[in-house]
Every structure is written in structure tokens, then in C-alpha cells.
Amino acid sequence: MEATQPSGTTKRRVELRITRPVLTWFARPTVTIDGVGHPAQWGIGTWAVPDDGGTVIGVYLYNRVWRFGAAERSVADQSVLEYRAGPLPFTAGRLRSSG
């Protein structure tokens, strides 16, 4: 198992724009980076990702009852991604490159 690196050693960052849907059902977004979940907020944020190789970034919504609107994408060089949830809670979201 690899030792964790000290904070500030990652040089690559990805900007993620999480757009709030019309009906959220009190949901909060969660961002996953290579399968590890991190709580997030609506709006624009930046996330540190490993410098080497493709990283899988995912977003889903969670409202204490169920998970919905999941979307994921492998990023190799994109620096700006935009997430939009599906119109209904049982549909998938979209995570696309913007800009």
C-alpha cells in the first residue's frame, strides 16, 4: 500500500461545476475521485486529482433515502467539467467537458 503524500503535492486540479436541478428532494451532491467519495456543494469548485494517468471522477446526489443522478467520466487532460442531474430521480446525470 502506498503512503499518502503530504498536502499540496498534487499539481493537477479539475474544476467541477455542479448545477442544482429544479427538484432536488433535499439532495446533496457527492463527488467521487477514483471511487473515494467526498461531500460537495452546489456551484463551482476545484478538486485535486493525481498527476499521472486517467482519473475517474463521478458525481451523484444523495438525500438520506436514496442515491440518484449518478454520472462518471475519466479525465486525462480536461480541466473543466459540468454536472447536471437527470430530470427524474431514476434517470442518470450528465458529466461533460465544458470549455
Rank of each mutant, 00 (worst) to 15 (best):
M1H: 09
E2T: 12
Q5Y: 11
P6W: 09
P6Y: 05
T9Y: 13
T10R: 13
K11G: 14
R12L: 04
R13L: 15
E15W: 01
E15D: 02
R17Y: 14
T19V: 14
R20F: 04
V22K: 07
V22D: 11
W25A: 11
P29A: 01
P29V: 00
V31T: 04
D34S: 05
P39N: 15
G43Q: 08
G43N: 09
I44G: 08
T46A: 11
W47L: 04
A48M: 06
A48D: 14
A48Q: 08
V49T: 07
V49H: 03
D51H: 06
D52N: 15
G53H: 12
G53A: 14
T55N: 08
Y62R: 07
R64C: 13
V65S: 10
W66F: 05
R67E: 07
F68I: 02
F68Q: 00
G69I: 03
G69F: 02
G69K: 02
G69E: 05
A71E: 01
A71R: 00
A71N: 00
A71Q: 02
R73V: 11
S74V: 13
D77W: 11
Q78C: 11
V80H: 12
V80W: 03
Y83G: 07
Y83L: 11
Y83R: 10
R84T: 11
L88C: 02
P89I: 05
T91V: 13
T91F: 14
A92H: 13
A92Y: 03
R94D: 09
R96S: 15
S97K: 13
S98W: 07
S98D: 09
S98G: 12
